[in-house]
């Protein structure tokens, strides 16, 4: 009656749901530390619910053969709940992607994090423990360590994104010429919609010269120009 871990039994149901709460909770705890909108509760809820959905599919199959005695119904597809859960969490996650100022997109990591959390929950519900261990380790590495790595990398890179504000639209030519004289390369620039008054602003993607990769020196040089109101570096 109680059964083993692998087969669908009361013990495995209890174990898998507890495991889902544990894994989701640990990842969520990790994200809570970084003040993310999706924290401990969101990750735990999503993981447990996804595991429950998969377990429900197993439950229905067992009931069809044992209790309700319909035989293996030809139309029953055990993966339908898991598929619906995934497409559903995709919508929810999309709601957390934000289009911020200066053409910055933020919240993508949160969205994908919740999505992967649900994927992990589905694997737990199915009893696919090998995949769960792998996924959990990967998530911890990505969320915990990659953040520092990526931040440090971005600060040292030669690519710099900034938003420059100025008064006259013709100043943009002066600014781009000054950037080129500095030795930097311009990938792209984008004039933004007018803000308050007659202050215009533009987002410029540049590549700093090899000889001088200091972000602050470059920004100081741009700020020094008389036509420039302000300059701000954008780090995604």
């Amino acid at each position: 009656m109680v059964g083993s871990f692998d087969a669908f039994s009361f013990l495995s149901v209890v174990f898998r749901l507890l495991l889902a709460a544990l894994c989701g909770g640990l990842i969520g705890f990790e994200r809570s530390k970084k003040d993310q909108p999706a924290g401990l509760r969101t990750y735990t809820i999503c993981c447990v619910a996804a595991a429950l959905a998969t377990l429900t599919s197993y439950y229905v199959y067992e009931m069809l053969t044992a209790v309700w005695a319909e035989g293996e119904s030809l139309k029953f597809d055990g993966s339908r709940y898991a598929a619906a859960v995934l497409s559903g969490i995709g919508f929810l996650a999309a709601g957390s992607i934000v289009r911020a100022a200066h053409q910055q997109i933020t919240g993508l990591t949160t969205a994908i994090g919740v999505f992967v959390d649900v994927c992990m929950g589905i694997a737990i519900g199915a009893g696919f423990y090998a995949a769960v261990i792998g996924a959990f380790v990967m998530l911890i590495i990505v969320f915990d360590m990659m953040g520092h790595f990526e931040g440090a990398f971005k600060r040292r890179t030669r690519n710099l994104t900034m938003v420059v504000s100025f008064e006259d639209i013709l100043d943009l030519d002066t600014i781009t010429e000054a950037i080129r004289n500095y030795g930097a390369e311009i990938y792209e620039f984008d004039l933004e919609e007018t803000g308050e008054g007659n202050i215009r602003s533009a987002v410029i993607w540049t590549k700093l010269p090899k000889e001088n990769t200091s972000h602050s020196l470059f920004l100081t040089a741009i700020a020094q120009m008389p036509c420039v109101e302000s300059v701000q570096e954008l780090i995604a």
Partner: peptide, 18 residues
Amino acid sequence: YNVKGLTTAAGLWASGIV
């Protein structure tokens, strides 16, 4: 540019699954 209500949405979604 803060996202609010994600946990509430997840809770409703989970209530449905339960």
